[in-house]
Design a protein around this nucleic acid. Sequence first.
DNA 1: ACCCAGGAATCCA
DNA 2: TGGATTCATGGG
Length: 272
Amino acid sequence: MIKYPKQFFNIEDTLYCGQVFRFKPFKNGYVVISKNKVCYLYYDNEFVVLESTDDDYFYNYFDLATDYEKVYKKILSYNVDFISKSAENGKGIRILKQDIFEVVFSFIISQNNNIPRIKRAIEGLSEKLGEKINAFSTEFYSFPTCEKLALQSEEFFANLGLGYRAKYFVNTSNFLLNNDFLEKGKTEQTNGLREYLQTLSGVGPKVADCIMLFGYGRLNSFPVDTWIEKIYKENFNGKLTDRNKISQFFVELFGEYSGYIQQYVFYYKRGK
DNA sequence: ACCCAGGAATCCA
DNA sequence: TGGATTCATGGG
């Protein structure tokens, strides 16, 4: 069990800010599933309590070694009104260190899709192809392995509601089978890694940025989706239309704080 | 019926 | 290199 002050660890903000899909309400809080591990989060007075099948894993997963008060203060120092308001609103968010493989396939599903549908598709995949996990006297399912995914047909994925993304699953699961492509990415610089990841079927600039931010922990990446494009136009009076250039604009401005800021403004703009 | 959702692939000039 | 079109699917 881990206890952590709740001021810079808000369970709902961290889970609902759009970075992760495998969680759901459970008893007095929420469960989160990552790889073959499960954790249960709830509040106890001024603390978040974390019970899990592997506390060391989730200590890293929730980035508990990072001082988010420092991050928060640094972001306020940019003195940009919209960003300060976003940070104030979402200061309980922690950028999760998720499993790279799961992030790749989760965000392939996410393209041109909405969050409830994304969650449903991932749960369906896990229930049909994942391993059963028993935790907290309840059954959960792990995310499917590459081997399991690579065995399925395009029709199988289409029947789970993946739509035209089904062929990306076939292509990428077969491509990643029996090699260390994702592991090798760890040695790449961020710009190189961005291009590298886009060689995967179904992975373009935005999904690559999400994989880098949520999987590889590259905080100097700034995913640009429809919401961020809206923010850029409405709140920054931006004139660029190329999303690559919009992303570059923010990264040049915010450097290693890009990832935090991206999540804060995305969560703030999207509302609840 | 239309528009949108954490966009990418493809075609076309 | 840049711009428009196409791609499933469910919700508002």
